[in-house]
Design a binder for these strands. Structure first.
Lengths: 223, 223
DNA sequence: GTGTTCGTCAATGCATACATTAGTCAATGC
DNA sequence: GCATTGACTAATGTATGCATTGACGAACAC
């Protein structure tokens, strides 16, 4: 949710810290003082402070008075909560999109994202697959046109990113998931509102079940 | 979403500005520079700046480089988007809550909020009614226990607050709406998951239709 | 009268200064 | 040996300083 009023350094601090958190360079639980973050980023405390405030609003860090900022871990309950919201929002959005009977041309960005998932799957490139998966979901919401929903779902994706990447590497290739995206795409192209909603909901619920059972199995209660 | 790392002045700036926006003291479109907000609040630019960053994350103001901060107006499309999200989230949460078969005791906070709505309705106190309505919805989500959902729905309520208050004063007493809350409460007490979901969705969709048609009728495209 | 250029002014973005205060640790008392 | 106290340290929260730069208006050309 890169906001408007972000000047150079403040924006840089925000994006670099966010990237470092997503990529586990700043792992969950990591805690530094403001001067430490400032030194790491090579700037003064002011832009860093502003970036940390935004990251707190994004749910990625927690500002602890007098003790700096802590990278928030994600618990199993957090993942449950996040998936519950996604399961409520995305299928509804997809159904509405389908009801507008979008042309194949309009859905081209979605098809492209889906094809990128297939390519990444064939190449066994899980990172690329995850990027394409994210893109598919984001683009679906872009096409739907509810900007608030897109922004919020994006922040949830960011929060869940680390956990998803870990489980992605722990299990079999995401063939089923890729297939489900194809079905969603085709149902969208056919304008089948009901079907899209059901497939999407089933997709989300299966993803949630699998993710949580993996995390439980490996006793990863904090990520 | 009052965050943790808020010191005295910064927190005060955040809350006062938020209140002033909700209560239309700072009307939509209002734009001031940082020094002006600072002077109004009797503090330096620093805590004001931090408050404005948080308010931007809340979707209440827009920071415009070199030109200060503008109180964001809410358009008809914004209201559509907000209600779409609420319609997806709240009924799902209510259904899950019902499926836990909560005791009447557990639902006491909800019943209390509902009774406050009735009292306010009888007293023709629309402001109190709106507060009780807000409280009902918030408490339902508190009981459900998904903190992210509660926080997000709360920020949406804040964004929509002005528009809701305006339409509330333009129409007949919200008898039907109050009645629907009673039905929701009773279905929750009966543990009727499906019914709760349906009633809640119908409640949200009716509220959305009425609100939007009022706004259109009076050509209030920006609030 | 309209459009253009230039100079002034002030708000921002960032850095820094500074008082306050929480946290730490050693010294002391028991 | 353990707990308590107190002084020191350092991070925060806020204020202020300062260079940059965009906005605005006046003067001018046409």
């Amino acid at each position: 949710m890169a906001s408007q009023g972000n000047a150079a350094l403040s924006l840089e601090a925000y994006e670099r810290l966010k990237q470092d958190i997503r990529q586990n360079i700043l792992p969950p639980g990591h805690q530094d003082t403001e001067p430490e973050y400032a030194a790491r980023l090579g700037m003064s405390r002011t832009p860093v402070r502003e970036a940390l405030i935004r990251l707190e609003a994004d749910g990625l860090v927690q500002l602890i008075p007098r003790r700096g900022a802590r990278v928030l871990p994600i618990s199993l309950d957090d993942m449950e909560d996040i998936y519950e919201i996604l399961t409520a929002l995305e299928p509804a959005a997809a159904a509405k999109l389908a009801s507008t009977r979008p042309s194949a041309e309009a859905l081209a960005p979605l098809r492209q994202a889906y094809l990128a998932m297939e390519t990444a799957l064939d190449a066994d490139d899980l990172d690329a697959w995850a990027d394409a998966d994210d893109l598919f979901h984001r683009r679906m919401l872009e096409l739907h046109g509810n900007k608030r929903m897109l922004d919020y779902v994006s922040t949830l994706f960011d929060q869940a990113h680390r956990a998803r990447m870990i489980t992605l590497h722990m299990r079999d290739k995401p063939i089923k998931s890729t297939q489900e995206h194809k079905e969603i795409l085709e149902a969208l192209e056919a304008g089948q509102s009901q079907q899209v909603e059901e497939i999407f909901r089933e997709h989300r619920e299966r993803a949630r079940r699998e993710l949580l059972s993996l995390l439980r199995k490996f006793r990863l209660s904090q990520l």
